[in-house]
Nucleic acid binder design. Sequence first.
DNA 1: ACAAAAGTGTTCGGCCTACACCCATGG
DNA 2: CCATGGGTGTAGGCCGAACACTTTTGT
Lengths: 263, 263
Amino acid sequence: MNRADETTRPGDGDPAVPPDAALLPVTVDVVALTVRDDALQVLLVERGVDPFRGALALPGGFVLPGEGLTAAATRELAEEAGVAPPGHLEQLGTYGPLGRDPRGPVLSVAHLLLAPDFGVVRPGSDAGAVAWHPATEVLDGATLAFDHARILADGVERARSKLEYSPLATAFCGPEFTVAELRRVYEAVWGVRLDPRNFSRKATGTPGLLEETGRTTSGGAGRPAALYRAAAGGSAGRRDTGVEDGPAVVRAVIDPPLLRPRA
Amino acid sequence: MNRADETTRPGDGDPAVPPDAALLPVTVDVVALTVRDDALQVLLVERGVDPFRGALALPGGFVLPGEGLTAAATRELAEEAGVAPPGHLEQLGTYGPLGRDPRGPVLSVAHLLLAPDFGVVRPGSDAGAVAWHPATEVLDGATLAFDHARILADGVERARSKLEYSPLATAFCGPEFTVAELRRVYEAVWGVRLDPRNFSRKATGTPGLLEETGRTTSGGAGRPAALYRAAAGGSAGRRDTGVEDGPAVVRAVIDPPLLRPRA
DNA sequence: ACAAAAGTGTTCGGCCTACACCCATGG
DNA sequence: CCATGGGTGTAGGCCGAACACTTTTGT
């Protein structure tokens, strides 16, 4: 995969990195979103160490030598929340390095995880409580560590807009789901009510979004609903390039888009 | 702006960055796009140093200690192409750090510049020729240094999609422009032909896109065209947050969107 | 007068919305 | 047989594509 050189200081040997280049510590932070109790919720940890000890923050931490960005994000989720959730992970953006960490310049590569509701197994070693919080409450209520409030706002807006033209809403659902569950995802993320009849027609009629399983629900009230799974190439995190890390080009675009109601 | 600590090694003093964190060299690369001769063109430099000496590459270079990402991108444009162009600069994504530079792990934060056609003043010290190249030719023809082909593809796709729902097409135009010029921008970026009559109605009727100047062109053939400027808060790079660097939340969204024709 | 480019009116079809209505199951 | 939720039919309106037509200049 890479050269022998996997240490902190690169470039021993052939053409070296210029000596005046900055060497920056890099963190990954994860905006982990799910739909729980018909509301969009975000995974937050209580920081156990300075700076911002005791404050709420996005899960995340420093990239280690020889580690890729996605690997670091996955590892931090495992370490801080004890989970290896399914779902869709993509890069959100990079913040810093100046003016965001009292310790000095730190670059932070934020990621966005859209996942079905998963249980938090255990809080990690250097973090206190790990819990889901309603996104709207956090957005216009709580104060988060570092610039995490801004990162969260960007992540939520990205999720909202992605539901319009990509099949990623299915990333919030389990392996099989009904059209009504999918509709509740849209309603929770967008904060609106959608007409179930029109939504059903639109969702089932959109190529590349749903795939029939032939099975139906049973047990609940009313007529059983057909069960679907995400269409192949939809929410599954496709990464068909050889490059280790970098923004994924979303190839599956649903057309016509499912537009959220305008204000 | 920041703490006293602006050196390469941060965290001397209060709670330090963990000693096992990687310290990575960080580059900024710029996908600088313009519309020239009715075609989307990208600014490329010929590398003057190893690795990839002699190959075509995106302008860019290492972030220096105490420098922000946007500042680094602007400085590299000035150094390698001798320009300080107007236009819209935004972050595209972050690539690496593994497997993209033979010197070792290097993180690259790619940026996207949409600008009116500007002259290249002088090639920089560590770069050879600097020139515009038609984007389509480069995309499915040339091989670029590092993973720049992929970054360019992502940048072009981002530009194409941004024209649909943002007023950024005006970033390709000068301070005053006609509807026909704006249409040629859309046609060049999307690679399609648009009906001038319908486009005119759509563009002038879209709130937040154009602002009348009251003036008209003269001298050319045919009826004079009305001159417009970009609506306030449109293509002007708004950065109304206090944070130094990070993805800008595009607040100005044109509605209804100008959708490119579907295949 | 003619060419050329800017801009307006009009028609047509598809999609979105709203809502009436039918379907299938559990109590 | 009725409540509950799943799903189909259908009418109206809005918007974009297509294109005939008018306006305003240069030659």
